[in-house]
Design a protein around this nucleic acid. Structure first.
Length: 679
RNA sequence: GGCAGGAUAGCUCAGGGGUAGAGCAGAGGACUCAUAAGCCUUUGGUCGGCGGUUCAAAUCCGCCUCCUGCUACCA
């Protein structure tokens, strides 16, 4: 029997759980349940990640203590997880005494190994908020090229890199005030000392090949930089014991939370922490997203190794979730909170759908809503549950046959595939496992069809045959549900009730059930109603919009500098140069598809008084021609006509964006009239 | 620009030197126990393009095109 300690990444206490997070927790929960069904000892721990500036600022804004905020969020997180059937053996918090104790232990080990260095660094300090400012909370004028409103680390215009203290006229985005420079002592972990160890460990098969290559190319090809692990007060976190006034950076104590949570679990179980974190006996498995590989595959193993803790046996890394092929989006309604999903849909649907899509590769996963409905309905309701649904009631009175009937080797074949299915689960290839299980399900329904119990029951002389056929069908159903149980615990529970025996072990697929009663059948799973999916999306969209609308006026925008960096400002021109460009308000009188063109739409622009221009615009991917008709746009009216493949273009319309689907036409506010000059 | 992954049926994907696969969707049929579920039959693909290796390439190699993600001195 293996002894396994399993973790998912700790969710940050600043936000609610959404369907993107759930990929990871469901992936982990399925693995844990699978291990338990295989007879292994598996302990699943997790915790809320509670520290950091973001929590501190939010608690202040809401006028309450950080402790009150994180307590509320922890409760919400755990409610969401429970709603999806995610079963932790222990759920803790990084803000716990257990975690503090482990932080102290690891810190002492790092000190002892001479891996901590101190350095005085100048930082910007927001006097109004009374806090030091991380790079992302500062904007100002670039010291090299003078561009205004640049972020604290590099200039989007000229590409210069600098620190926030180099900015001319810096502004705090928290308060809008001008911060001052203050010197502060920071503590760094000299991780380069572990370079050789990490170079070897990352290539040892513990992490996916893709990730190993990534680390090798981006970090391990040069000396590793010192890691800044302290933040000066005020900071919500743990004070560093030998450096009063300094706190551990949130990313220092977050992974340590895995150990802290284990310690709390041990406390409750009368177990020894050392048996779990300092013993060869225990395998440690982390499940994380690809965005936080860096912390889990470099700093984390380096700390563990230094402090004498076990290293992870395996780090399972998954990709991101997209919905209908796009990033989750509040405006599209695809940014769906776990709690919102549960208001409308059964968690088992999502558990199954994600399972069909998960593999051991670091791949993004798409939730295609149409496919979601189709898969769940046809696989689970149509194929699997249907088996019980069409056979249970015929044996409600007689129960199962006293000995297992001849079934042409079906049950044995199901049992034989068990190891193969198990190995797919073990490797994280849930999609493969689901395919194999559905292949089996596809053999079960034809059996029922061939035996035709609805015919058998008409002839009292064939009652034995009827009972046998249903005994086979129900046993096949039972095996399928056992194989699916890690994914569908609720279905497994209901099926267990049908048979009067819980389905808890893979071994149960080896022996058919006979000679026992079958409970009255009732529906084990409802079909997914597309209308409910619709309703969920609509409500998510409306709530997303409401949230956006309620953004307090005057709050600082956190616009990224990417767009400007990607396309720096052009050389200076004079007002005369500018006036050469005759921009006019125009109305889209007609917009036609150009089927042969890949990007172009043919627009007829009206300048008032019947004056029109034909313009070809490269906006096909972004706009439906029909939606454009009637709206006002801004056009370059005196641009030299250009012969194009499909006709002459007599101007341009003005739009922003990088291209493709991301094109945004400029339009005048209400009141502008076609023909008016823009300047 | 760099790195990684991908391109196979309308959709989602599996496979992987020797007759192209599954599920869903589509079409036709028989049935009616079952949540209008299930069963049978069937349409549909020069496996992204061009070259190479080979008796044989969807599969191996090279080049190209297009997608997706990450990344651009940064945690």
């Amino acid at each position: 029997m293996r002894q396994l300690l399993i973790t998912s990444a700790l969710p940050y206490a600043n936000g609610h759980i959404h369907i993107g997070h759930l990929v990871e927790y469901l992936q982990t929960d399925i693995w844990v349940r699978f291990q338990k069904m295989r007879g292994n000892r598996a302990v699943y721990v997790c915790a809320d990640d509670t520290h950091g500036t973001a929590i501190m600022i939010r608690a202040r804004a809401e006028g309450r203590s950080e402790e009150a905020l994180i307590a509320e969020m922890s409760e919400a997180h755990q409610r969401d997880f429970a709603g999806f059937g995610i079963e932790f053996d222990h759920y803790g918090s990084t803000h716990s005494e257990a975690n503090r104790a482990v932080c102290h232990e690891i810190w002492a080990a790092l000190r002892k190994a001479d891996m901590i260095v101190e350095e005085e660094i100048d930082q910007l300090f927001d006097i109004e908020q009374g806090t030091f400012l991380a790079d992302r909370f500062v904007r100002g004028t670039c010291p090299r090229c003078g561009s205004k409103d640049q972020p604290g680390d590099n200039c989007g215009n000229c590409g210069a890199t600098y620190g926030p203290i180099d900015l001319v006229d810096p502004v705090s985005t928290l308060s809008g005030s001008r911060p001052e420079i203050r010197a502060a002592k920071h503590l760094f972990v000299r991780i380069e000392k572990m370079h050789d160890f990490l170079a070897e460990w990352t290539q040892s098969g513990t992490i996916p090949t893709e990730s190993a290559n990534y680390l090798k190319n981006f970090f391990l090809n040069e000396p590793l930089r010192d890691w800044d692990v302290s933040r000066p007060a005020p900071y919500f976190g743990f004070e560093i014991p030998d450096s009063p006034g300094n706190y551990w950076y949130v990313w220092f104590d977050a992974p340590i939370g895995y150990i802290g949570a284990t310690a709390e679990w041990c406390e409750g179980q009368g177990e020894k922490l050392d048996d779990w974190w300092k013993s060869e006996k225990t395998e440690i498995h982390h499940f994380i997203g690809k965005d936080i590989q860096y912390f889990h595959t470099l700093f984390w193993p380096a700390e563990l190794e230094t402090a004498g803790f076990s290293l992870p046996t395996q780090v399972h890394i998954h990709g991101f979730l997209t919905v209908d092929g796009e990033k989750m989006s509040k405006s599209r309604g695809t940014f769906i909170r776990a709690s919102k999903y549960l208001e409308h849909l059964d968690p088992e649907y999502l558990r199954y759908y994600y399972a069909t899509k998960l593999s051991s590769k670091v791949e993004d996963l798409d939730l295609n809503l149409e496919e979601f409905v189709a898969r769940v309905n046809s696989d689970l309701v149509g194929k699997v549950v249907n088996l019980a649904s069409r056979s249970a009631k015929f044996v409600a009175e007689t129960g199962l046959s006293s000995s297992y009937p001849e079934d042409g080797g079906l049950f044995a074949r199901f049992a034989e595939r068990g190891e193969e299915i198990a190995s797919a689960y073990e490797n994280g290839d849930y999609g493969k496992a689901m395919r194999m299980i559905m292949e089996l399900a596809d053999q079960a329904n034809p059996y029922v069809e061939e035996k035709a119990p609805w015919e058998l029951r008409k002839d009292p002389a064939k009652s034995g045959e009827l009972q046998d056929a249903c005994t086979v069908a129900l046993n096949l159903f039972r095996s399928l549900v056992i194989y699916l149980a890690p994914v569908l615990p609720a279905l497994a529970k209901k099926a267990g009730e049908l048979f009067g025996e819980p389905l808890t072990s893979w071994e149960q697929t080896r022996t058919p059930l006979t000679g026992r009663p079958v409970a009255k059948f009732s529906h084990m799973m409802q079909r997914v109603e597309p209308a409910k999916v619709e309703a969920m999306i609509t409500e998510s969209r409306e709530e997303g919009e409401a949230e956006a609308a309620s953004t307090p006026a005057g709050k600082a925008w956190h616009d990224s500098g990417e767009a400007l960096a990607a396309n720096p400002i052009a050389p200076q021109i004079t007002i005369e140069d500018f006036l050469k460009v005759d921009l006019r308000v125009a109305r889209v009188v007609a917009a036609d598809e150009v089927p042969e063109a890949r990007k172009l739409v043919r627009l007829t622009l009206g300048l008032g008084g019947g004056e029109t221009r034909q313009v070809f615009a490269g906006i096909k991917a972004a706009y439906e021609p029909a939606d454009l008709v009637g709206r006002l746009v801004v056009m370059v009216a005196n641009l030299a006509p250009r012969e194009m493949k499909f006709g002459t273009s007599e101007g341009m319309i003005v739009a922003a964006g990088p291209g493709g689907k991301d094109i945004f036409l400029l339009g005048p506010d209400d009141g502008a009239l076609p023909g008016q000059r823009v300047g």
